[in-house]
Simulated scan of single mutants.
Amino acid sequence: MVDVTGKVVVITGSLRPLTRQDAVAFLENQGAIVQNYVSAQTEILIAGHKQLDLFEPDKRSKKYESTIKRIADGQKIRIISEEAFFTLVKESHV
Rank of each mutant, 00 (worst) to 15 (best):
I68S: 07
K7G: 05
N29K: 13
Y64Q: 02
H93W: 13
E28A: 01
L52C: 06
A23D: 02
K63G: 10
V89L: 14
H49M: 11
P57A: 08
G48A: 05
I11S: 01
K50H: 12
D53H: 05
K7N: 08
F86I: 04
R20A: 06
R60L: 15
E91W: 07
M1G: 13
V34L: 07
V8K: 09
A47W: 12
Q51I: 00
L27M: 01
V2Q: 13
D58A: 14
Y37M: 02
I71R: 15
V10R: 10
D3T: 06
G31K: 05
A32H: 01
K63D: 07
K7I: 03
L45C: 08
K62T: 12
G13Q: 03
Q21D: 12
G6H: 06
G31Q: 03
L15F: 10
T19L: 03
V24W: 01
V34Q: 04
R60E: 14
P17G: 11
F26P: 03
R78P: 03
K69Y: 07
K59R: 15
F26L: 12
K62H: 07
A72N: 12
V9I: 14
F85L: 09
V89P: 04
S81Y: 12
K69W: 02
N29F: 00
V94P: 09
T67S: 03
G74S: 07
I33T: 06
I11K: 04
T42W: 06
Y64P: 05
D53V: 14
Q30Y: 00
R16Q: 08
R60H: 15
L15A: 11
V8R: 07
G6T: 09
S14H: 08
D3Q: 13
L88Y: 08
K62S: 11
Q41W: 03
K50P: 02
G13V: 01
E28Q: 14
I77W: 09
A23N: 05
T87D: 15
E28I: 04
F85W: 12
K90I: 10
V9M: 14
E28L: 03
K90G: 09
V24D: 05
A25N: 11
H93D: 15
A47D: 15
P17Q: 10
S61W: 04
R60K: 15
V94T: 12
E65R: 15
V8A: 07
M1W: 02
K59Q: 09
D3L: 07
E56I: 11
F86A: 07
K63N: 10
R20K: 10
L88D: 03
E56P: 01
R20N: 01
I68Q: 14
D3C: 10
I44F: 06
N29G: 15
T12W: 02
